[in-house]
């Protein structure tokens, strides 16, 4: 089924819905080999953790699964904060939403143009993690 297990040093899942988190983790299992999968309830928690890792020289996540609608700090606000950070590596950010509001899609397009990181837009439901969700090399080909 899966051709290759991708080895990933660190993954962030930012979502306040436990079912989605469960799903993502389950889907990650067959495609990615990662010992460091961290779950966050909202953008603020994830941002704080990221800043902490940057300070302490810890692993910066290679892949982030980011929900849009969350309390305290939502996906968009988190994205704004990330863009301002000085990061050497590009992060693959998969925005996950059940919203079909065209405004969200438009926002994503605008953000993609501005953002140095790789920005994917995934509409729920998700049944499978694609290779492109994990690897920027595949995007180029």
């Amino acid at each position: 089924m899966c051709i290759l297990m991708k080895k990933i040093s660190s993954i962030f899942i930012v979502d306040d819905d436990p079912i989605t988190v469960f799903g993502i983790r389950k889907m990650l299992k067959p495609v990615a080999l990662c010992d460091d999968v961290q779950i966050f309830q909202n953008g603020k928690e994830a941002l704080d953790a990221l800043l902490k890792r940057m300070d302490s020289g810890g692993d910066i996540p290679e892949v982030i699964f980011l929900d849009i609608n969350m309390p305290i700090m939502d996906g968009w606000d988190f994205l704004e904060e990330i863009m301002d950070l000085e990061l050497k590596e590009k992060i693959i950010i998969n925005m996950i939403t059940s919203s079909i509001d065209p405004l969200d899609h438009q926002k994503w397009n605008e953000a993609k143009a501005k953002c140095l990181h790789i920005l994917n837009f995934k509409n729920k439901p998700i049944f499978k993690i694609e290779p492109t969700d994990l690897d920027c090399i595949h995007l180029a080909s």
Partner: peptide, 8 residues
């Protein structure tokens, strides 16, 4: 969001 969860 709920129906998506169901499907998944």
């Amino acid at each position: 969001s709920h129906s998506a969860n169901f499907s998944m």
